[in-house]
Amino acid sequence: MNLSDFVVAEAILPDLQSTSKEDAIRKMVDSLGKTGAIQPEDQESIVSHILKREELGSTGIGNGVAVPHTKHPSVDRLVATIAIARDGVDFASLDGELVFILFLLVSPPDRPGDHLRALEGISRHLRNQNFCSFLRQSKSSDAIVDLLDEADNDQL
């Protein structure tokens, strides 16, 4: 699955200023809401689902990356956004390090295969050090969209 299939370009946050996990998640969900990818009336419920998921174990998976996510019945296709936090966010990550790259996913409950394939796509690219360092250096949404296209086309 290509990143550009599910990352909502208009919702990307190239300069996220957040000190807490909850604030970061709220800002990312809010950004998805502004694009219409999710409905405003569902935002609070989506945030609380994501926070509840974090209670089961942090989605800060190491290497400065977090993938907060939830299933939610209000979406009929998988939608995601990316945020870059230059100062880092304390995500209670598995390796104890701050998080600089965040992928937030909202998936329809009846499509577990899509969720797995999205995680596969994200993690495959995040294993590429070029992808991670270019992502962290990106200063605009356009630059990130270009980078996602290059990653999708294996040009990194």
Partner: peptide, 10 residues
């Protein structure tokens, strides 16, 4: 973790 997630094991 990143490695395992690339398996997308259904």
């Amino acid at each position: 973790m990143l490695d395992i997630l690339t398996l997308a094991a259904q």
